[in-house]
Simulated scan of single mutants.
Amino acid sequence: MTDHPILFSAPMVRALLDGRKTQTRRIIKPQPVSPYLENGDWWDETAPGTATPMVLKAYAGDRLWVKETHAHVGDNGDDHMACPDLTRLVYYRADDVQPELSRWRPSIFMRRQDSRLTLLVTDVRVERLQDISEEDAIAEGVERLHSGFYPYGIATFMTTFVDGREVPAQCCTNARDSYQLLWDHINGRGAWDANPWVAAYTFTVIKQNIDQIEKVAA
Rank of each mutant, 00 (worst) to 15 (best):
A51G: 04
L181F: 05
T87P: 06
A194T: 08
R26A: 12
P35V: 11
D62M: 05
D96Y: 14
A10T: 14
N209D: 08
L17M: 15
V13T: 09
Q113L: 13
M12F: 15
W183E: 03
L89M: 13
W192K: 00
T159C: 04
K67G: 03
R144Y: 05
R14M: 14
L7Y: 13
R176T: 12
A200P: 06
Y179C: 05
Q170Y: 05
F149A: 02
Y91P: 03
Q208L: 08
E134M: 02
L56S: 07
T2S: 14
R116E: 14
T118K: 03
R165P: 01
L119Y: 02
G190F: 02
Q130M: 13
P5A: 07
G141H: 01
V142T: 02
Q98G: 03
L86Y: 09
T204W: 10
M12V: 07
V73S: 01
W42I: 02
A71Y: 04
D62Y: 04
R88T: 11
A155W: 12
R125C: 07
Y150L: 00
F8I: 03
K21I: 10
Y91E: 09
A58Q: 11
Q170H: 11
P168S: 05
W197A: 00
Q23Y: 08
R116I: 14
L119I: 03
P32L: 11
T50D: 12
Q130W: 04
T159M: 08
D3M: 12
D163Y: 01
G77C: 08
A82C: 13
D114N: 13
A15F: 10
W65L: 02
K207Y: 15
C83Q: 11
F8V: 00
H70Y: 13
W43L: 13
D85N: 15
S133D: 09
H72A: 03
G77L: 08
V97H: 04
T173K: 08
Q31N: 12
V198N: 05
F157C: 08
V55E: 15
M1L: 10
L89S: 13
E68F: 06
D177N: 06
R111F: 12
L37N: 10
G188E: 05
A199P: 00
C171L: 09
G153R: 02
T122L: 10
D193S: 10
R25C: 11
Q130S: 10
R116F: 07
I210T: 06
A194Y: 12
I27P: 14
H146Y: 11
T118L: 07
M54H: 03
V198W: 00
M12R: 13
G40K: 04
V126W: 10
L182W: 06
W65C: 01
A194P: 03
